[in-house]
Design a protein around this nucleic acid. Sequence first.
DNA 1: CCTAGAGAGTTGTTGAACAATCCCACAAGA
DNA 2: TCTTGTGGGATTGTTCAACAACTCTCTAGG
Lengths: 234, 234
Amino acid sequence: MTTTQSFLDGLAAEVAGLPRASTAERVAELLRRRVTEGDLPPGSQLSEEQLSAVLQVSRNTLREAFRLLGHEGLLVHRLHRGVFVAELSDDDLVDVYRVRRAIEGDVVRRLGTAAAEDPGLLDPLRADVADGTAAARRGDWSGVGTANMHFHAHLVALAGSPRLDAATARLQAELRLAFQGADAEAMHAPYVQRNADLLDLVAAGRAAEAAAALEEYLDASLAHLLALRAAGRP
Amino acid sequence: MTTTQSFLDGLAAEVAGLPRASTAERVAELLRRRVTEGDLPPGSQLSEEQLSAVLQVSRNTLREAFRLLGHEGLLVHRLHRGVFVAELSDDDLVDVYRVRRAIEGDVVRRLGTAAAEDPGLLDPLRADVADGTAAARRGDWSGVGTANMHFHAHLVALAGSPRLDAATARLQAELRLAFQGADAEAMHAPYVQRNADLLDLVAAGRAAEAAAALEEYLDASLAHLLALRAAGRP
DNA sequence: CCTAGAGAGTTGTTGAACAATCCCACAAGA
DNA sequence: TCTTGTGGGATTGTTCAACAACTCTCTAGG
C-alpha cells in the first residue's frame, strides 16, 4: 500500500458506475427509458426483427437485453409470441404495494432512534423533500414524481441492504409503468407534504409512529392510484 | 362446456408445469439442480464451450440459461471473464436474513387471527412440519432441510402475493448455496421443533407473539449458520 | 356455429466466424 | 526486488445467416 487511503476511498464504486457495460446492457438501458417515459405504451409488442434493425444490434444481443428488462418486470416474455411492455393489472398494483408495505415498514420500524442519534443519516431524504417542494412550486409534476421515488429509495437505503435496494428499484420500475397516462399532478402532488411529515417522525426517532404513518400513507397512495386508473379507463 | 368441471380442475396448472419450456429454461433447470445440490461448488467457473458441448446446445442458448440463473442469484456473471457459481459472503448471508425478517415478519404480523378463523389455511404448514419430523426420525437430514424450506415458502404463500413468493424462492436458492458443505444435521435439526412452535402460535391467532418468535428464530438461525461456516473454514 | 387445416409471419435455436478482452508468463527497467 | 511493458493463448462478446418450431389468421367444409 504505497498510496494514501483517502485517494482510494470510493474509487471502486466510482469506476463501477462508468459506461463499463455490454452492448446488451446499453440496449436495455435505452429501452428502459423509452418504456418508463411512456414512449412505448403498456401492451405494445417489441418485434425482434424490427428493433434489431433499428438499433443495429443482432437479434441475439437484443434478446439478452429483453431478458434483462423481463426480470425487472418491465417486459413480459411469452414463449413463441414475443416480448411485450408489461401491463399491470389492479391486482399487480395491490401486490406491489403489499411488498412496499413489508419492506418500507420494516425499514422504518427497525430504524428506531438511529436517525435521532446521527442526524446526517437523513440528509439524502431531506434533499429529496426539498427537490419535491421546489419542483411542485414551479409546476414540474414529473420532477415531483422523481423526487418522490428518490425519497423512498433513499429511505430503504438506510437499511444498508443490497437486496432490499434491488427489490425497491424493481418495484419502482413497475410503478413508473402504472403511472403512464395518469395525470401527473393528481398523482404526485399530495405526497410532498406526507414525505416531509414522515421524515420528521423518523428524524425524531419515533419509529412506531412513523411506521403507522407510513402504512396509512401507502394505503392512501394505492387507493388514489387505483381510483385514477379506474377513472381514466372507461 | 361439454365436460364435467371436476375433470378440468387444475388441468391448466398441471400442464403449465410440464416440459412446456424453452431449451434455455430446461438447461437452466438442469444447472439449478446441479448447483443447489452441490455438484458444482461455489466459485467454480462454468465454461461456455465445454458446457455447450456436453449439453448439446449452442453457446447462445446456454448464455440465455446463464442469464436466468444469474438473476436468481445462483450464478454471477463477470464481463469478459465468464460465469461462476455464486459465493455468498457472510455479509450476503446477513442480508438474506435481513430480507427474510422483513418478509416473513410482515406476513405473520398481518395474518392476525385469519388462521384461527379458517384452520384449513395452515394445512400445508402442518404437512411440512410432519414431513420434517418424519425425516428427522429416520435421520434424513437433507429431507429435514427441504421440509424446512417448504414450511417457510408456504408461510409466505399465506399472503397470496406473487412478488413475495418470487422473492422468497430467490432467497431460498441463495440459502441452499450457503448450506453447501455444512453438516446437514447440525444445520437443520434444531428447527423442526421451532417450526412446530411457530405454527402453534400462528394457528392460535397470536400474531404479535408469533412475529416475535419468528424474529428470534431467524436471528438464531443466522448466528448458527455463520458459526458453522466460520468453523468449517479455518 | 363449430372444426380442421393451410399459409404467412414471428420466434427459437444452431453453428461458424471474428472482435474484444482477460490472464499468465516473461522480459526490461528502476 | 519491485514495478512496468509485451507478447501469445484462451475465453468471452457479438454478429450473421439459416432452418426449425410455433402462433395467428383466414378459409373451406361439416
